[in-house]
């Protein structure tokens, strides 16, 4: 190698290490040099079109008029105004949202303008409700009510059956979505003795034909309708619930908080009911949606839940 190095005639940097180790000083490839110059040109053009250089407490916004963005803004009071600004991401988003709005607005206007029943009868509009509703439902409702609206025991009610704790009319469902719900049942551990808790649990099970002890259920009947526990005050004298406060109908086969259907043995079913009455329940919280969704989106979701998921009244 050292033999070859001595033959080199190209210019070197002039450094010599270890007696004869030298560094060639070849020019950079021409394509690379030109690439470098082009980046300078690109930067200059970019400064003309886009926000770029900071100056004191503001910044250059490109040459005025060269790269403007025009969009329609909606003001707080609902009026609209067309605006033109220099190019920036937030104004570009306004343009994108305007385009989306233009495509969807005719449908949303129809949903907003018609009564629930008329929306439901309009087959073409229902196609829009189904596809837009599915997206809104998946993103906002499915985390609790699950993907198909089937709900989850001990968590969120099934929306596909025909039982509605807070009412299943369009108006009821809309009210629920707008303002949310907070279902509470007080604890009875300090009010009823262990024996009384067992008896009233037998009675509750008897209402929907679950296995129970008839003698205990009879004693439980008296507790249910007595003023010490006062169960009837919320669940009703016939134990059919009350949609005004969301108290459950105890006479059907639908169970949300105690997992009676999931419990295999009569003892386990009794345990589920007794545990709930003992400790109460303060978990029936549905969030408020009027702060997150627009009124027309809520109306569309109402129709989707009522008609498309099924079971609406």
């Amino acid at each position: 190698m050292s033999q070859d190095n001595k033959k080199v005639t190209t210019e070197t940097t002039g450094h010599v290490w270890d007696e004869d180790l030298q560094e060639l000083n070849n020019p950079l490839p021409r394509w690379w040099i030109w690439g470098f110059y082009i980046t300078f040109a690109f930067a200059l053009i970019y400064w003309l079109f886009y926000p770029a250089w900071p100056i004191a407490n503001t910044y250059t916004k490109g040459v005025p008029g060269l790269n403007n963005v025009t969009y329609v803004a909606t003001k707080v009071d609902g009026t609209q105004e067309t605006k033109t600004t220099h190019w920036n991401m937030r104004s570009k988003l306004m343009v994108e949202m305007n385009e989306l709005h233009k495509e969807q607005k005719p449908y949303f206007d129809k949903v907003a303008g018609k009564s629930f029943e008329d929306v439901s009868k309009d087959a073409e509009l229902m196609q829009f409700v189904n596809s837009a509703g599915k997206t809104l439902f998946s993103d906002n409702c499915a985390p609790c009510h699950q993907a198909g609206g089937q709900g989850k025991v001990k968590f969120a009610p099934n929306l596909t059956d025909d039982y509605w704790q807070y009412g299943g009319t369009y108006e009821n469902i809309q009210t629920t979505i707008v303002g949310g719900r907070h279902g509470v049942m007080p604890a009875f551990k300090a009010i009823l003795s262990d024996a009384e808790l067992t008896e009233v649990s037998h009675y509750v099970l008897s209402l929907s034909g679950e296995p129970h002890n008839a003698a205990a259920a009879k004693l439980g009947d008296a507790i249910f309708h007595g003023d010490k526990a006062g169960c009837y005050a919320c669940h009703g004298v016939e134990a059919k619930g009350n949609i005004a406060m969301g108290s459950a109908n105890l006479t059907d086969k639908i169970w949300l908080w105690p997992d009676v259907l999931g419990a295999k043995t009569p003892e386990a079913k009794l345990g589920e009911v007794k545990t709930l009455i003992y400790g109460g329940m303060d978990k029936g919280v549905m969030p408020v949606w009027e702060t997150r969704l627009k009124p027309e989106q809520i109306k569309l979701l109402t129709v989707y839940v009522h008609d498309s998921l099924g079971g609406g009244k």
Partner: peptide, 9 residues
């Protein structure tokens, strides 16, 4: 307004 914050960019 829905474009209020665009003016900061």
């Amino acid at each position: 307004d829905d474009d209020y914050f665009a003016k900061f960019r």
